[in-house]
């Protein structure tokens, strides 16, 4: 199942992994060791930066600022290298597992993250310098794509879009999951509710993500990276080859899968695009009875009609960019 969740939102695959894993872990009632939790937080924040960088590049490209795209992809390249170090994949990472992580940290992985954290904040200033000091950019974005807040709530718009409308709703703060209550960060908001406000909120979110990652890096605990739940977690290769029980568990998990007790669960996390929810129903077998995804892009794109009404063609391009939707995430 986990590699499938990667494909839902190809720019925020780890967020989808995390949400699914958290839902199943809730059903199973297993405790994830702190090292795994902190690594998950660190990497999902990295995913947020990844997604926001792609958004920034393409949004600016849509408005005709071509160079911005290349600057954003330049930094994204460093970030994808980190993903590759951890999971062996640049895009479809599938790094989280039910009960922890797929692998422990690679050699030099944390140093690479640290280097990125030192390199990245000045680059955000650089982007802002290029765009915020530019009257054309401001003309194109300020006052464009406004939708009344109550309409936004009615249509289920979440994430940076609703925060730019003045509602500080962030699942990381309001419904903490995966240890987010241990981290110090602000939820950037704005009340202008236009394309420019959304841009400002996302830029600020990247800074906050850097802050969270710094804390995660500093306090990274030692210890196990997978829960002690032999019926759920695949055993280590070494154990499997020396211990009879481990071999049996391995065989059972690979052939039958993880048996999840019957029940249903709804897990919400804050993906880069907004509120991501996984509704999972289990009938006690190893295959889920039903998995429904409440994806943020689907909600966010509903505002497009209202934003475009009575506007110019060029404004619809700006509004569309400010929604930051991924079509895979919209259509599932």
């Amino acid at each position: 199942m986990i590699p499938l969740t990667d494909r839902v939102d190809y720019l925020a695959n780890l967020s989808n992994n995390l949400c699914y894993c958290l839902a199943i872990e809730k059903l199973l009632g297993i405790e994830v060791p702190p090292r795994a939790v902190w690594t998950r937080v660190m990497l999902t924040e990295l995913t947020r930066i990844n997604s926001h960088l792609v958004w920034l590049g393409t949004h600016a490209l849509d408005m005709g600022a071509m160079s911005m795209f290349f600057y954003a992809t330049r930094e994204r390249e460093e970030l994808l290298k980190i993903f590759e170090m951890f999971s062996g994949q640049r895009l479809m990472t599938s790094y989280f597992r039910i009960g922890g992580l797929a692998l422990d940290h690679p050699r030099g992985g944390l140093e690479a993250v640290k280097k990125f954290l030192e390199m990245f904040p000045p680059k955000i200033d650089e982007y802002e310098n290029l765009l915020d000091n530019n009257p054309i950019w401001k003309n194109r974005t300020i006052g464009v794509g406004v939708v009344p807040v109550d309409k936004m709530l009615a249509m289920g718009i979440t994430g940076p879009m609703i925060r730019a409308a003045g509602i500080p709703w962030d699942a990381r703060k309001d419904e903490p999951y995966s240890g987010y209550q241990n981290f110090e960060f602000d939820v950037p908001t704005s009340t202008d509710n236009d394309v420019y406000a959304r841009y400002r909120v996302r830029m600020e979110e990247m800074r906050q993500s850097v802050r969270i990652m710094g804390q995660a890096l500093e306090g990274m605990p030692d210890g196990a990276f997978q829960a002690d739940a032999p019926k759920v977690v695949l055993p280590q290769r070494e154990k499997m080859k020396t211990q009879m029980e481990a071999l049996i568990y391995h065989f059972k998990i690979v052939t039958e899968g993880v048996r999840v007790p019957p029940g249903e669960v709804y897990q919400v996390i804050e993906s880069p695009r907004g509120e991501l929810g996984y509704y999972v129903v289990s009938d006690g077998t190893s295959k889920p009875f039903r998995v429904h995804m409440r994806t943020p892009s689907f909600g966010n794109i509903q505002g497009l009609g209202m934003m475009c009404e009575g506007g110019m063609i060029a404004d619809s391009i700006a509004s569309m960019g400010s929604m930051d939707f991924v079509l895979g995430d919209t259509d599932r």
């Binding site: 600022a65 530019n134 003309n139 194109r140």
Partner: peptide, 12 residues
């Protein structure tokens, strides 16, 4: 300039 600036909107 082409490498630096975004595009104007028509009315602007």
């Amino acid at each position: 300039i082409r490498g630096t600036l975004p595009r104007f909107r028509y009315d602007q």
